[in-house]
Amino acid sequence: MKAKPDVCIQYNSYFFENLVLLIYRAIRAKVALAIIIQDLHIDLSVGVFSKRGLRSISQRLAFWLARTFDLIVPISASIVDDFRLDSSKCIIFQGGITKFANDLMLGERPVSQAIGVFAGALESYNGVDLLVQQWLGQKIGYPLHIFGRGRLAEFVSSAATESSHIVYHGFLDEQSVLGWQQVARWNFCFRYSIGLNQDYFFPSKLFNVACAPGALVVNNFNSLPEGIKNHSCVVADDMSNLSLQMRESLTSVGVLEARERRNYVLSNHSWAACIDQMFRFLSSRVNA
């Protein structure tokens, strides 16, 4: 039996996938199409025939097709404004928690280890190079455990060789990393416009990390939700006050702050709530 769905939801924008869905809608006129855009890699400042240039052109073509969908769910309002989308068919959603967040929220036990944990792509847009530099430069005496892979892996590995306060684990599965995040006094999540536009590429892992019991350390990146910012440890973009903010968080960020962060995330960043809102929007179109 062949499925003939009345509603199709695409996660992220890809040229051929978008084109196939539009062809399907042309065949079945009553089909409603929606697209969730969490990552948008568009950079026409690079050469057309470079790898990044070709990827950017492909993304623009895909985005041009996505504009004709019935519902667009971008990660930021900047995407709506900059690409002149029809705001009447847009729902802003920065991202939501996954099942790993539920594990991080088990109980309200205090953190058990004075360690810092960074988990993510080892790229400059995630600030891992700046974090390591400031950790060493400010002589922070706690272990910093780093998980991930990327272009800065060699830099991190070299720092770990030179300092006993930097521990590089390489890439591990999320469940393994979760065990460290559950006991860490500080968890880190940064975002910079280096190699990408942070207005189009929000660190959605933030919502999972915000559910950990320790202090959440962030920079004041674009679109950082106030409900998370108000219950986190916010450092300067150059991290010059990293050590100071970490010390202050030892007394200012405890069980109550973690609870407030979790409550905010659960109320505002649930994929279930997002999908429910999308279906209600699309159902009104299908039944119109």
Rank of each mutant, 00 (worst) to 15 (best):
D103G: 07
S270R: 13
G47F: 03
L54Q: 11
V20A: 15
V253C: 13
S232Y: 13
L244E: 15
A273T: 09
G148M: 09
M1L: 14
V31G: 01
D43V: 09
I57V: 15
V73D: 03
F190M: 10
L178P: 00
S78C: 11
F201K: 09
P110E: 11
D103A: 13
S249T: 04
V46M: 05
S270I: 15
D129K: 11
R259S: 14
V265P: 00
L172R: 09
A288M: 12
A273K: 15
G120N: 06
R262Q: 10
I42S: 05
G47M: 08
A160K: 09
K4T: 11
P213Q: 12
D129R: 12
I57R: 05
P225K: 07
S243G: 00
F15G: 11
R262A: 06
F100P: 00
R52C: 02
S50E: 09
D6P: 00
E174R: 07
K139M: 07
P203N: 03
K30E: 15
V73G: 10
P203T: 15
S45T: 12
Y142R: 01
M1P: 04
G95T: 02
K205C: 03
R52M: 12
Y24T: 07
T68H: 14
R185M: 14
V7A: 00
N126Q: 11
D276E: 14
S112N: 09
V177M: 00
V73A: 11
L242T: 04
S270V: 14
G148C: 13
L71R: 06
W186G: 01
A272K: 15
E162T: 14
V156Q: 09
Y11S: 02
P110H: 08
K2S: 11
Q175Y: 04
A66C: 14
Y192T: 05
S124T: 08
Y192Q: 05
D276I: 07
N241F: 13
V286G: 00
N102W: 04
A159F: 06
Y200G: 02
V46T: 13
A210L: 09
